[in-house]
């Protein structure tokens, strides 16, 4: 069983559009592969909007814990505020009707330093339900996805949970590949999404920002020794940028396995909640994506 992760440094480069098309092609295309899909962009999970699956199971996700001060026990010594490095301890405030020290749960990092320093043992840690994860069935196969509640922490842990469940499901059902739609950036959620991947497909845009972000994304996959290949999306919108992306990849010894032209069919398909390869299989973007999928499928087999 192989894991393919779709990444891009920059957001909005077209990861979800590609993941949805790959889901369709893995199921129905000429190079069909039995696949489990995983949406690892838990901050802004969009694969569900295109695949419109049926939710089979729903589970709560417990993120980190935050500190809570018991106002009955607090003697107001201020030690908690002195030790907190995250500015999460609020002073007593008559306006806020807080007569003792209290914790700002959004600022709290969950380190518990205050818990162990409080001379009155007035502080304890309380686990937070930070999101939900789902096992769903789409028309193209199973999808594991999640919602992180807004303003929550620990998205990396939820990404890990989504991927582990996708991997276990793939093993149990004899699937050959897990297709992971990754989050943008290069930090914790991306590292969690890319961990254990056999291949990273990095989606790049031929723009000043896209070139910069591609370099950082490729440095990150190289840092974690994940073999990477690149596709260029909206390649014709700025041909000199596309040429520069190709040159960057050539310098790094990274293969560019395809270019997708700018195509309004993608936008139309997304508005209709369908993969572009399904709604308009003859559109220029679809033809490019089908060719890319055939290359990928041969690498994953």
């Amino acid at each position: 069983m192989k894991q393919l992760v779709i990444l891009s440094g920059k957001g909005g480069a077209g990861k979800t559009c590609l993941a949805a098309a790959f889901a369709h092609l893995a199921h129905d295309g000429p190079s069909a592969i039995k696949a489990v899909l995983a949406d690892a962009d838990v901050d802004a999970a969009n694969l569900e909007l295109v695949l419109r699956p049926e939710r089979l199971e729903e589970h709560a996700f417990t993120g980190g814990s935050v500190a809570v001060i018991d106002p009955q026990l607090c003697q107001g010594c201020e030690i908690c505020q002195q030790v907190c490095r995250f500015d999460a301890v609020r002073s007593p405030s008559i306006e806020a009707r807080q007569l003792t020290y209290s914790i700002d749960p959004i600022a709290c990092d969950g380190c518990a330093a205050c818990v162990f320093q409080c001379p009155e043992q007035a502080i304890h840690m309380q686990p937070q339900i930070a999101g939900r994860w789902y096992h769903s069935q789409s028309r193209y196969g199973p999808l594991i996805h999640a919602d992180l509640f807004p303003a929550q922490e620990n998205s990396g842990k939820l990404v890990t949970l989504v991927k582990q469940n996708a991997r276990l499901l793939a093993m149990d059902t004899g699937c050959q590949v897990v297709i992971v739609d990754g989050p943008p950036g290069i930090g914790c959620p991306v590292i969690a999404a890319a961990s254990g991947a056999h291949l990273a497909l990095v989606v790049a845009e031929p723009s000043a920002a896209g070139i910069h972000d591609l370099q950082r994304a490729l440095q990150t996959t190289a840092h974690f020794r994940i073999p990477s290949i690149v596709v260029i999306n909206k390649a014709d919108i700025y041909p000199p940028g596309a040429a520069q992306l190709e040159a960057t990849c050539a310098d790094l010894g990274i293969e560019v396995i395809g270019c997708i032209p700018f195509d309004p069919a993608i936008e139309t398909a997304m508005l209709n909640g369908e993969p572009v390869t399904q709604s308009q299989p003859d559109a220029p973007a679809s033809l490019a994506i089908i060719a890319i999928w055939q290359t990928l499928a041969s690498r994953l087999n």
Binding site: T160, C188, P189, I191, S195, F224
Partner: peptide, 9 residues
């Protein structure tokens, strides 16, 4: 054998 799953937050 792997890059580590997740750290910090």
């Amino acid at each position: 054998t792997g890059p580590g799953h997740h750290s910090r937050r």
